[in-house]
């Protein structure tokens, strides 16, 4: 479902969204505010998800270790 292509696909979607936001922002004196707010929001939300969080878990170096299970102290090591 989610693999290495996800951030790229996400990037394309965000780019399309930004273009759409730029073109379809309500006309009038608040057009600049609409454009800047929508585009910046999309970009920063994308950064947070695709460019940072997703990539950080793409090739994880460590894996989770449960802490609700007591490892027998005799077995030598404890997590």
């Amino acid at each position: 479902m989610a693999n290495g292509w996800s951030p790229i696909i996400g990037l394309i979607i965000v780019a399309i969204f930004c273009a759409a936001a730029w073109i379809f922002a309500p006309k009038g004196e608040n057009q600049t505010v609409w454009r800047s707010t929508l585009v910046l929001s999309a970009v920063s939300m994308y950064l947070m998800w695709g460019a940072i969080t997703f990539l950080a878990q793409w090739h994880p170096i460590i894996s989770p270790v449960r802490n609700d299970i007591r490892v027998d102290p005799g077995s030598g090591h404890r997590f």
Binding site: M1, A2, N3, G4, S6, W49, T53, F54, Q57, W58, P60, I62, S63, P64, V65, R66, N67, D68, I69, V71, F79
Partner: peptide, 25 residues
Amino acid sequence: GPTATRDDGYTYPFGLDWKWHDTEN
């Protein structure tokens, strides 16, 4: 547990994986 292995080729799609909650590390 207590250790975990990765589901190969699959990355948690949105945000941090919830399995990290309440883990040792």
